Structures are given as structure tokens and as C-alpha cells.
Computed example of a mutant assay.
Amino acid sequence: MELGRRERKKQQTRQAISDVATALFLERGFDAVTVAEVARAADVAVQTVFNHFPAKEDLFFDESGWWTGPARAIREAPPGADPVDVLETQYLAMCRERLTVGHLATWKQFVATIEASPALLARRRLNVDELEKSLTEALDERSPDQLRNRLIAALYGAAQKVLEGRLMAVLPDDAAPAELVRVQSEFEQAVAEVFAVLRRGLR
């Protein structure tokens, strides 16, 4: 029980730091905010921040599921499952979990913060490289066709980029909640279209 309480307290502290950091980054820009300022705003020591987040960029990209989830989904899929089907299901589930109405309301600001920071752009490129590498490894464990596996992983990374661009295009500024629900529906239709293109190309 004591271990459980400590773990819950640790997770609560981590989430509080992350929430404070995200608010500061979106308000002032990533490069304009220091880790010391995040620590002060969260009422913790600087070392506490680094205990939870090894680098400043980790405070911004706090969710690793975007680049580790695809490989995990492939490894957990039943034998014989089509990898594109598995990846589409995983991507949709991830989007439904992360791109809630509340998150969509700040999505453009989130992307603009990345694009304004060389450090965040560099970290995002590393994340994409990690995604493709881990996904390729997971696919190689299921199929000996290494060339096809590498292609699937690269196409999945490209699909994510295309879909994020589509979301930016259809997401209006200062949208009302009802309008955000419509955007979610349109985005899921775009997901279906993109993965259908992947299937046709791979066949």
C-alpha cells in the first residue's frame, strides 16, 4: 500500500509538472521558457523536474505513444493479422484518446510552438526516426520480407505527417465544441482514406 501511495504521488507530481510546462510553452514559446521557471511555477525543485523529465524537450513531448505505440501494436497483434489494418486501428485509437475536444482546441498552438523551435523540430525528427526503426524491428519479427517491412514503416511515418497536415487544414481557429466534434469526424474519414491508399500501394 505504501508503495502504491508513493507511486501515485510520483505520477501526480509528474503530471503537475507536465501541465505547468505545457501551459508556459504554449503561452510564451518553448525556447523562451527555462526549466527553472517550470520548476518555480510547479513549486518543485529543478532536480525534481529532471528526475521526471531527463531533457527539456521531454517536458513538451510528454506522450511517447505516438512513436512507440505502432511497434507495440504489431507485436501484440494476432498471427496473420494484416499490418496495415493493425496500424490503422492503433492510429485511430491513439487519436481518439489524445485528440479529444479539449486537446483539439489547442492543437494549432501546439504545432505552432513546435515549428517555432529548432530544438523541438530536431526532437520531433528523432521521434519519427525512432518510430520507423522500432516499427521496422517489430515487423521483421513477424515477416522475413525486410524490404516490405521497411517500406510499411516509412509509409506509416509519412501517413502520420499527411494526416497531421490535414488536421491543421480542417481545424478552424477558435472553434466551438460542436464544430470540433465535426472536425473529429472529418479527420477520421481522412484516416480511412489515407490507409486505403497505403493498402492499394502495397498490393
Score class of each variant (00 low, 15 high):
Glu7Trp: 02
Arg8Gln: 13
Lys10Glu: 11
Arg14Glu: 14
Gln15Pro: 00
Ile17His: 03
Ala21Cys: 01
Leu24Cys: 11
Asp31Tyr: 03
Ala32Leu: 08
Ala32Lys: 14
Glu37Gly: 07
Val44Glu: 11
Ala45Leu: 03
Phe53Asp: 06
Ala55Val: 03
Phe61Thr: 12
Phe61Cys: 06
Gly69Cys: 05
Pro70Gln: 12
Ala71Asn: 07
Ala71Ser: 12
Arg72Met: 02
Pro78Tyr: 10
Gly80His: 07
Asp82Tyr: 02
Glu88Pro: 06
Glu88Ile: 05
Glu88Lys: 15
Thr89Gly: 14
Met94Pro: 00
Thr100Glu: 09
Val101Ile: 15
Val101Phe: 04
His103Glu: 15
His103Met: 11
Leu104Ala: 09
Ala112Val: 00
Thr113Tyr: 04
Ala119Val: 13
Leu120Gln: 03
Ala122Ile: 02
Arg123His: 07
Leu131Glu: 07
Thr136Arg: 09
Ala138Phe: 02
Glu141Cys: 05
Glu141Lys: 05
Asp145Gly: 11
Arg148His: 04
Ala153Arg: 02
Ala154Pro: 01
Ala154Gly: 07
Tyr156Arg: 04
Leu163Asn: 14
Glu164Asp: 11
Leu167Asn: 08
Met168Cys: 12
Ala169His: 10
Leu171Lys: 12
Asp174Met: 00
Glu179His: 05
Leu180His: 10
Leu180Gly: 08
Val181Ser: 10
Arg182Met: 10
Glu186Met: 14
Val191Asp: 08
Glu193Thr: 14
